[in-house]
Design a protein around this nucleic acid. Structure first.
Length: 465
RNA sequence: GGCGGCUUAGCCAAGUGGUAAGGCAGAGGUCUGCAAAACCUCUAUUCUCCGGUUCAAAUCCGGAAGCCGCCUCCA
């Protein structure tokens, strides 16, 4: 069965069909690297990660492109304030970004193009728009003329007229013909300092939206499958991307637009501008596990607002602990008879797991299927153990589920020789019923964050989350 | 003001006409040298409120209240 996704463009659930057979091209709007991303930002990247992982699970080959916006008003402003070059400034946050996505067990996209490395492509795009009458020059800058693009507003389902009426007209020193026109190339101004490119369009820098049109089309073609981002990107960013891209090519730009809802904190949108955000680093410093953050972010449907609380984070940690304990429990299960109940349980779990995700990545029934599976298999393990082949099938199923969820096998844990030796010493102590020593070793290791559990088939260790 | 969404147990959250999934937290029990894990049992007569339709409503219709997001560079 093909998955169904809610397409912002049509506001309906649509069956997913790639343009080219089994290959999926997806463009996921990435970070503006002017500061560390906060966990609200990561909600988007975790959602996109689940999307790409599930598409792969379903057998599609995925080419994901995520941009790094390393040139815009804020990166310029902040690098100047810090007294360092734009590159130096953004490098720091690019590195931080990759460190964070690794810690969140977010799979790497196939490509992370940087805006500053694609100026020529953007210039060409602007020229195309000038050639076919969608853009104009004014006061050193170039603008997209939305009155030439009748479809404008199709994505966010708003009337352009209401925009004009809608108060908030921008400041700036750029001279647009119509307030709702947007800059595709900004002529150099003094406040840009040494940040500019000398191009056929003159001295200046790209507008924000143009980078995504240029880079997505360069790497995914002029017409591709999926484009995602936070709901706040629907307008103006994605609306403008459509206008620029389709204005330039005359082709349909993207088939499926998927947008995730915001992360809230104290029931308000988490946003840097409101100064009510947590970075991943903040939470790690408080002693929280990044994978718990991942679970928290993925455990609510992506189109539903999610209120961040520490109580929720604690719950997420405990949920993962149960899943990881299940893995240990199965691995250390005593040998038992072949059971058809195991097969039945696997079959049911897989069916429900996929049914949930096929339904617009409806994660709740999917997680329910995993926990039902855990309980059913645990009961069999407790009662009669597992046959070797059953054990392998259960582990394979768990790995398959985790290829999407990414919370169980997220870390490749190792223990060093010293710890291994202590564990063996404790086993020996237990054998001669020296429980005092055994308990001491267990307590010592616990203080290092290593938990020992005695099972039917021996002692297993795990790391405290 | 315009557009969209949300309101289900202490917390999170499925469920779109047939009598409330799942997770976390909590209580009791079994097992265990002790722990832990695991298993078993229990924890919403009820889904923001008020009307209506129906044999039957958390689900459909009408109304009210509360909350959130977007409305020009924020994921």
């Amino acid at each position: 069965m093909a998955p169904k996704f809610f397409n912002t463009l049509t506001r309906t659930l649509e069956e997913f069909k790639p343009i080219n057979g089994n290959s999926v091209g997806m463009y996921t709007c990435g970070p503006t690297v002017y500061g560390p991303a906060h966990i609200g930002n990561f909600r988007a990247y975790v959602f996109e990660d689940i999307l790409r992982r599930y598409l792969k699970y379903k057998g599609y080959s995925v080419k994901q492109v995520m941009n790094l916006t390393d040139i815009d008003d804020k990166t310029i402003r902040d690098s100047q304030a810090a007294g360092i070059s734009l590159d130096e400034h953004t490098k720091k946050f690019k590195d931080q970004f990759f460190k964070d996505i690794d810690r969140l067990n977010i799979e790497r996209a196939e490509l992370y193009p940087e805006a500053t490395k694609h100026i020529p492509e953007m210039v060409i795009l602007v020229q195309k728009l000038l050639d076919n009458g969608h853009a104009y020059y004014s006061g050193g800058s170039f603008y997209f003329k939305i009155s030439t693009f009748p479809k404008y507003g199709a994505l966010f389902h708003m009337d352009i007229e209401s925009l004009k009426a809608g108060a908030r007209i921008d400041n700036d020193e750029y001279e647009k013909e119509t307030a709702s026109d947007f800059a595709i190339w900004k002529g150099w101004s003094e406040r840009d300092g040494d940040v500019y490119w000398e191009t056929e369009l003159g001295k200046g820098r790209p507008g924000w939206h143009i980078e995504c049109s240029a880079m997505s089309m360069k790497y995914l073609g002029e017409h591709f499958d999926i484009h995602t981002g936070g709901v706040d990107n629907i307008f103006p960013h994605h609306e403008n991307e459509i206008a620029q891209s389709e204005g330039a090519t005359g082709k349909k730009f993207v088939n499926y637009w998927l947008h995730n809802a915001h992360l809230l904190v104290e029931n308000r949108k988490m946003a840097r501008r409101d100064n009510n955000f947590y970075t991943l680093e903040d939470l790690v410093k408080m002693g929280h596990n990044p994978v718990a953050v991942r679970y928290l972010l993925l455990s609510t449907h992506y189109r539903q607002q999610l209120n961040f609380t520490f109580e929720g984070l604690e719950g997420a940690k405990n949920a993962i602990t149960r899943l990881r304990d299940f893995k240990l429990n199965v691995e250390s299960a005593k040998i038992g008879p072949e059971s058809s109940a195991v097969k039945d349980s696997i079959e049911k779990a897989v069916t429900e797991f996929e049914a949930g995700l096929d339904d617009d990545l409806n994660i709740s029934p999917t997680l329910a299927s995993v926990f039902d599976f855990v309980r059913e298999i645990n009961a069999i393990v407790a009662e009669q153990g597992l046959s070797e082949s059953n054990k392998k099938k259960v582990i394979d199923t768990l790995k398959r589920f985790d290829s999407v969820l990414g919370v169980i096998y997220a870390t490749e844990d190792q223990i060093d020789e010293r710890v291994e030796k202590l564990i063996n010493e404790r086993i020996a102590a237990k054998k001669i019923r020296d429980f005092k020593k055994a308990d001491q070793i267990r307590a010592d290791l616990l203080s290092e964050g290593i938990i020992l559990e005695d099972t039917a088939t021996g002692t297993v260790w795990k790391r405290k989350l």
